[in-house]
Write a protein that binds this DNA or RNA. Structure first.
Lengths: 220, 220
DNA sequence: ATTATCTTTTGATGTGTATCAAAGGCTTTT
DNA sequence: AAAAGCCTTTGATACACATCAAAAGATAAT
């Protein structure tokens, strides 16, 4: 995945992957409170991460797919600060963080890569804050769909259709909405001819309309 | 600030600080879109960071005080992805990120420190997502006050009083609320004898009550 | 296959916060 | 010291989303 390495460096990089681990749908990759030892590179499958308040409220903090790195929440306190749950059968590369640190002292390109991945996560969360703080239900769902599509497209999949790996409730938790509101927004988009929905399957009929909902200023 | 360095290492660390920079109240330390070159360690003063959507909506993503590091949003794309505005006259240490990376390859304790700072920011943003997605207005304000107090206390200031550096509108933007709602929540806390408010000055009369509002499960 | 469980949709109603509006209190400027 | 400009408070009203409820549709279990 990382670019900017020569053949020799790529060999060194293999050192970082200790082993692989399979996680079945519904199972935890790690739990909040678990000792942090490793980052995980998702090879296949789909995850959600979420935090839970002491009184039991759950907030989905992200959805992660193949090629993405998970577990950076654990670095600060040597314990994980969120839960990671597989939403479909998954396989991850276990990368002991001590090894990542050792190797990135020798390989500036790896060091840079690690920094960028963490910075990207910070920037992503900034835009989720914008979403949660300033946008209405339909804007949030449009933003969510566009983001998923863009990431799937970057992996060679279609720009115009996708199969959701999460429930309406999980989407709602991520977007700060109740599942009924998510369902209604899907129905609205469908009525307006913007998308076609059949359960988890979603086909985008009018991507421009979706972008306008996400970013109303485009109307000007 | 960082711990775990010996005298020699501390000398090396001085290399990382290129110079200092003063930022007057209301001025920008950096702007979204600016080329990213450096992280900034706040020596004195108080900042807010915010992102702006294309149609002009602003979301405050954080408030930063002395001893905190700002600018990590720029690493991923070599451009800053948010604005940093001084809410009072401030002075920062400019730390060119290339130097930080060079030096952290030689000093594992610095490397570790950089990783922890970024991870801490990820974890902080996770809890803001919980706040924005799941909590009501008064819970959000209680959480906000408790967080500020805790950080001020860690800097040797009082646990029971503080002077806000930001307006009701900026608090509202951070908490996903309108300024009137923030004002009403302050008034409610004041009526209930939990705090005393006089403009930007806030005194905590009943810290336990505040904690209960933030975390209702404690009532059990 | 058949039952049980989970997920999704849709409707009716309720509520927390936004919006609109106006006045008063600070702060800064001149 | 007066004027101008912000910031804050408080009230009245509106609205977006939550909540409650029920049924239909998938999915998993026996």
């Amino acid at each position: 995945m990382p670019v900017g390495f020569n053949v020799d460096e790529m060999k060194r990089l293999d050192e970082v992957v200790e082993k692989r681990r399979r996680v079945k749908q519904g199972e935890l990759l790690f739990n909040s409170g678990d000792t942090f030892t490793s980052l995980y590179a998702i090879r296949t499958g789909f995850f959600k991460t979420c935090v839970t308040s002491e009184d039991g409220r759950e907030q989905v903090t992200g959805f992660q797919m193949a090629g993405e790195i998970i577990g950076m929440d654990g670095i600060v306190s040597d314990r994980h600060n969120c839960n990671a749950v597989a939403l479909e059968d998954a396989e991850v590369c276990v990368m002991p963080f001590a090894t990542v640190e050792d190797l990135s002292r020798e390989l500036p390109a790896l060091q840079r890569h690690v920094h960028k991945i963490m910075s990207r996560e910070i920037v992503r969360e900034n835009s989720v804050m914008m979403l949660l703080g300033n946008m209405r239900a339909e804007e949030r769902l449009a933003a969510f769909l566009l983001n998923l599509l863009q990431r799937l497209h970057a992996r060679g999949l279609s720009q115009s259709e996708l199969v959701l790996r999460m429930t309406r409730e999980e989407i709602g938790s991520y977007l700060g909405l109740k599942l009924e509101t998510v369902s209604r927004a899907f129905s609205k988009f469908s009525e307006d001819g913007i998308i076609e929905v059949k359960q988890r399957y979603v086909k985008i009929l009018a991507p421009e309309a979706l972008k306008k909902i996400f970013n109303p200023q485009t109307l000007l």
